[in-house]
Amino acid sequence: MTRRRLPEWFLLLLPAIIVIAAVVLIPLIFSLYSSFTPYKLTRPSTLWTWVGTYNYEKILTDAKFWTAFGRTVLFLTIALNLEMLLGLGIALMVNKVTWGQRTLRTVVMFPMMFSPILVGFQFKFIFNDNIGLVNNALQSMGFNVALPWLVDGKLAMFSILFAEVWMSTSVFAILILAGLFAIPRDPLEAAKVDGCTPFQSFRHITLPFLMPFIYIAMTIRSLDVARAYDIVQIMTGGGPARRTELLWTLMSRTGYVDARMGLANAMGYVSIILSVVFTIYFFRKLTAARAQIGMEG
């Protein structure tokens, strides 16, 4: 008499499967389901009304959503590239420091220790057109202007980007610094012996070794950049006149203020495309970069 037994590997994995199902899968299925309903938080019964793809059709034909979508892509692209370049610069400089480097590394990490909400308030004050630090500094230097930092579309996006870059550059700096520590010394010394200029060494040895770290940082940050929601929400709330509206402000207003969770979830699923595209792109780049330095496989 043989008893049918579940395979051992499955039994061993079962706790993990249950936990993942509870905290990831069920909310995911629930939110996917609710995106096909007119679910309103204040009318729980609407959860059981099936409207098919109505929410998706509404979004796909909604110019406001696509403008926010495009602006978010632009924001991500500029923010991530700027943060990468500045982070690379900071990491290279910190790497050269021989005395007090640990303290410096800690100081570099300060901005990322702040809550994004605080960063938002801080820069909202700095860029306030009337009582803000920047305009007061400009005025005391003799420019009789009150630049509408948080009102003008371009200036407002700049202000938000500035705050975001200020807060998150250190993530890149720290990850790239870790990469710098891991670079083998031999190729660099060989290059020196061969008479390479410092730029050539950087371009052909240091940078290729750093690329995997850069792409990992990019991937993490492209998923994590939505933390900037707090900053945008506090500094401009997506306004004025939707000039700084990003997907995150649009979704949170739809879901929580207007209580239209069904529609907000549909927006979430459409915008997941964005994360998926960014992630696939960065992973491809990562694989290519690893292949270049012989780390593939």
Partner: peptide, 10 residues
């Protein structure tokens, strides 16, 4: 007419 602060929309 600039009779209100430029930031009034926020």
């Amino acid at each position: 007419a600039k009779a209100v602060p430029a930031g009034t929309t926020s």
